[in-house]
Nucleic acid binder design. Structure first.
Lengths: 212, 212, 212, 212
DNA sequence: GATGAATGAGAGTTCATTCAT
DNA sequence: TATGAATGAACTCTCATTCAT
């Protein structure tokens, strides 16, 4: 189902295309099989290149893994930040929080997000720097951005006075904590309605605790 | 100091001792290396037995993995349930909740708990049944037990009327959610003081939302 | 389908029964799997004993193999000799030869005979002495016995003067040679009618060449 | 003495050379040890390549075995057919038949022929398709070719009227049957003189039975 | 720059054989 | 004597990685 680029004979584009194809294939295979089990040969095949080409581009399997993970973490960060930015102080607070909560859960429950978290857990032992790669690009910065928005809500008198960092932590926890069980660690597709329920419940508790 | 023969030289206990030794070594090695990378030979060496002995006892690597995980999940369940049972309705509620919260965080942040969760995430792809093995023995049943206790607190008028299942989910989320970031996925040892802080903050938010 | 001896608790019979059971099971397993692939554990299970019992009786796998083969070779020799003894000089020669030829082919095409020959070929490299074990007990002595009978036929004027050893060799060759192809090396069950045809054709050629 | 580059250092021929080397080594080792006992590592060493190279070329041990056997069967077929083609109807029949018989016995008693037959018998259980691989390439087609020649001799009036297929079967049987015993299944080197004797005796019997 | 071919190291698994009971 | 348990050695097969083109 891949679309073959018909114009990549040794052009500069061709090289970039191949690099992207390899990264994409790598993430797919790593997700499916885990790092140790994933075969470079399989990745190469799925990317439509020869095995040594992978090595020409990335040097070794570990580097390929790191870069593939980093690329996906970037993507996830961007999506999450875009959601947090929707948290504005105009109008009724509850529906806004519920909408943001729902969107964040959508990100959290995205197939690729589960894959990323799974790989992170799986390979922390062999790749301790993965924490920084992923968290520097995703989880922490999202919480930070969320804290910023909450701080402004406090200043605007829409929330009671509190530590916005802690509040952001807890808001996130109230959203994602219940999902882990319900999504069975990403193996069950959670319907949007359930996402909205969880978001509503989280927001309810959050507002009971943090409304002025 | 009992003086029974604890040396395992060929007594009837020998078999059981070896089984336990293998399970223990297996968990250590799986934790260190991940399932795919862990070598049965290494496990055998670490257990002080020969490689075929491992196969005599467990048949193959997958079974060994499942049984090792199940054993650790059992242990974790027991510890968690013991903590939840301490949640009694006598006296002031806040300090009791804070103590239970702290103890639950101790369990959650235990080295072996992190290992278990990491392996669970890591190998879900290859072992989908791991969810049931672990959750049937741990996470879910703890939340259930917690919900039971919260229900009694509602009936006793110590908490406002609410769905105890949801309340338990959120209490757990408020505890563990913030830990994931702070413990850097288990790679950082979190001092008890910080655990108590997180517990206090979680209980504060929880009581603001669920006090009558 | 084995009949278990109900009275073998440590009696002298019990021991012999077990020995026979092991030999029988061994031959079956060796036939099915070949020497190298056959597992002593499987043989033991099929004989209804524990693995070390096999070693108590036979010392090692090679000895077990030799004894099992020797036992079957004995059985084959007896059957063949009984057939050759039917070769009497009274009455018409052709039908007698045809009957003997047919009976010899029956022996030759017996499942257990094919197994024996296959094992012999298979393991000649590892067991050079197998030639003597089997041939001393079977092929050669049958040809010798046949030569004896033919010699008496020559003396009785029923066959032309010739070397009876050569005649016996050739009579056997005319019988068995065509079978190898037709029986597809023992993997095809040859119907009796075809056996009789081959025997008749062999006798016809033999008599054309050796009638006085 | 041709002066082409027969050294195989990385030329395009290199691949083919290695393939041939592996096939040759495989046949030698399989012959020496039997299929089950033969180690791929040994084969690789004897071929002067690394173990995975064997797997790159043949995929697995079974395929390697089949291809090695097929290659040798091809070789044997060619030699046998060349001999049968020498069976012409000009001149005296007896010496021609004796020469052909002798040459066929040479083929039959060739070391590699014994090896092939031994392996065929030995591994029929595990490789039932070996019958077709070998017989389609060797035994059957030789008998067929021989039958063709005998048919022409019948038409030319040099042999009596008969079924040429049967006659070919019996001619072959008269040649090879006595060899099995004399060569002790290929473990004894039979001198040419004895081969000629057996051939002469076979031809004598054959002509007595089939001369017009 | 991209590839087909080759490899060293190591994986899981099996098995004949031997203790200790 | 018969056995459950343990083991050392060996097996097939895989894989990340590197030449030579």
């Amino acid at each position: 189902m891949r679309v073959v680029d018909t114009s990549s004979r040794s052009t500069a584009r061709g090289r970039i295309d191949k690099r992207q194809a390899i990264l994409g294939a790598a993430m797919q295979v790593f997700a499916r099989e885990g790092y140790a089990q994933a075969g470079v040969e399989v990745i190469a095949a799925e990317a439509g290149v020869a095995k040594p080409t992978v090595y020409n581009h990335f040097g070794d399997k570990q580097t390929l893994f790191r870069e593939a993970v980093a690329a996906d973490a970037d993507r996830a960060l961007e999506r999450n930040l875009a959601v947090v930015e929707q948290l504005r102080a105009d109008g009724d607070l509850r529906p806004v929080l519920e909408e943001v909560g729902f969107r964040l859960l959508e990100c959290y429950c995205d197939e690729r997000s589960w894959v990323l978290r799974r790989l992170l857990h799986a390979e922390l032992g062999r790749f301790p720097d993965l924490i920084d790669i992923v968290r520097g690009r995703a989880a922490d910065r999202v919480t930070e951005a969320l804290a910023d928005r909450l701080a402004r809500l406090v200043l605007a008198g829409r929330l009671r006075s509190c530590d916005p960092g802690e509040a952001a932590e807890q808001f996130t926890a109230l959203l994602t904590g219940p999902m882990e069980a319900r999504a069975r660690f990403g193996t069950r597709e959670v319907p949007d309605a359930e996402l909205r329920e969880v978001a509503a419940s989280a927001v309810d508790t959050f507002l009971r605790a943090f409304a002025p």
